[in-house]
Amino acid sequence: MSGPAYETLLVEERDDRVVVTLHRPEARNAISGLMIRELHAVCDLLERDPKLLLLTGHGAVFAGGADIGELLRRGRDEALRGINSRLFERVRRLPLPTVAAVDGWALGGGAELSYACDIRIAGPDAVFGNPEPGLGILAGAGACWRLPELVGESVAKQVLLAGRNLDARAALAAGLVIDVVPAEKLLEEAHALLDRMARSSAPALRLTKLVVDAPGVHPLADDLAQAVLFEGQDKKDRMTRFLEKKEKGRSRI
């Protein structure tokens, strides 16, 4: 497609939709600062020329979270900038509907990115989870308020507080995803869903989405809470241990 070159995304523009594949295979498609900037560039395109969006992940994973090494280096100022939350809110407010096709892990920031989409469709191995408190932070890019809206307060607290992961079956039962389909048909079914929406009136879809997406107090509250946690030693210790354990695992290979 015309426009910027991408290092962390595969981007395909069609007549009525844009297909974006998160592509950091060396890091389970973890959401890095560069990926955030490149997704902002995609939002630029979709705001200038509104189209449907299909968002998916490369390989057998959607996104295994945010880049922990980058999060470790972030402090209060970065939290208040809302690096991830501002992007995800921008995705949420794109003019036309967005669909996340999820198979494999959608954890942390990856889960929150999928929550920002209007509709999610899952493969059989999809797993949604928010393990941020285990790293000394909160799910500060939308999960604390989007997830209760999507699945209800009880299930959201099971995920956010008790560390429960929602597999594909549980996600379907909770209403988080519209359907669970075989992995080999995931993109085909996601495109069929977009095809149905594309047959509707684009202005009607756009205005319906505006009415449904009423503004709230977020993401300011998320950013303020995250700013406190980002400055804490607990967050630094937990993320350092995570990275050290990951490095030891690599050294054994």
Results as ranks from 00 to 15, higher is better:
4 P>G: 09
4 P>V: 14
9 L>E: 05
9 L>A: 07
11 V>W: 07
15 D>C: 01
16 D>E: 06
16 D>Y: 05
18 V>K: 02
19 V>G: 02
19 V>S: 13
22 L>Y: 00
24 R>E: 05
24 R>C: 03
26 E>N: 10
28 R>F: 12
28 R>G: 05
29 N>S: 05
30 A>G: 09
32 S>G: 06
32 S>C: 00
33 G>K: 05
34 L>F: 03
35 M>Q: 07
40 H>P: 01
40 H>E: 14
43 C>E: 08
45 L>I: 08
46 L>D: 05
49 D>P: 00
50 P>N: 09
51 K>E: 00
52 L>W: 00
52 L>K: 01
53 L>Y: 06
54 L>H: 06
55 L>M: 00
56 T>M: 10
56 T>I: 09
59 G>C: 12
62 F>S: 04
63 A>K: 08
64 G>E: 12
65 G>S: 11
66 A>K: 01
68 I>L: 11
69 G>W: 04
71 L>E: 08
71 L>G: 03
72 L>Q: 11
75 G>A: 08
78 E>L: 12
78 E>P: 13
80 L>T: 09
80 L>P: 10
80 L>D: 11
82 G>S: 06
83 I>K: 08
92 R>C: 10
93 R>A: 12
94 L>W: 02
94 L>V: 04
96 L>D: 01
96 L>F: 06
99 V>Y: 02
101 A>D: 02
105 W>S: 15
107 L>Q: 15
108 G>P: 10
109 G>I: 11
110 G>V: 07
114 S>L: 04
114 S>M: 05
118 D>M: 08
121 I>M: 02
125 D>M: 14
126 A>G: 08
128 F>I: 05
132 E>T: 14
132 E>P: 11
138 L>F: 14
140 G>K: 01
141 A>E: 12
142 G>P: 04
147 L>P: 08
154 S>L: 04
158 Q>E: 15
161 L>S: 13
164 R>N: 11
166 L>K: 03
168 A>M: 01
168 A>V: 07
170 A>W: 01
171 A>Y: 03
173 A>I: 01
175 G>D: 06
175 G>T: 02
176 L>H: 03
179 D>Q: 06
184 E>P: 05
186 L>R: 08
187 L>R: 11
187 L>K: 13
188 E>D: 15
190 A>F: 03
191 H>S: 09
193 L>H: 10
194 L>C: 05
195 D>Y: 09
197 M>E: 07
197 M>N: 00
201 S>I: 03
202 A>D: 04
202 A>W: 03
203 P>W: 00
204 A>R: 03
207 L>M: 15
214 A>C: 11
216 G>N: 14
216 G>W: 06
219 P>A: 03
219 P>V: 08
221 A>D: 11
222 D>F: 03
222 D>G: 07
228 V>A: 05
230 F>H: 13
232 G>W: 00
235 K>H: 14
236 K>W: 09
238 R>T: 05
243 L>V: 10
246 K>E: 12
248 K>R: 15
249 G>C: 10
253 I>D: 13
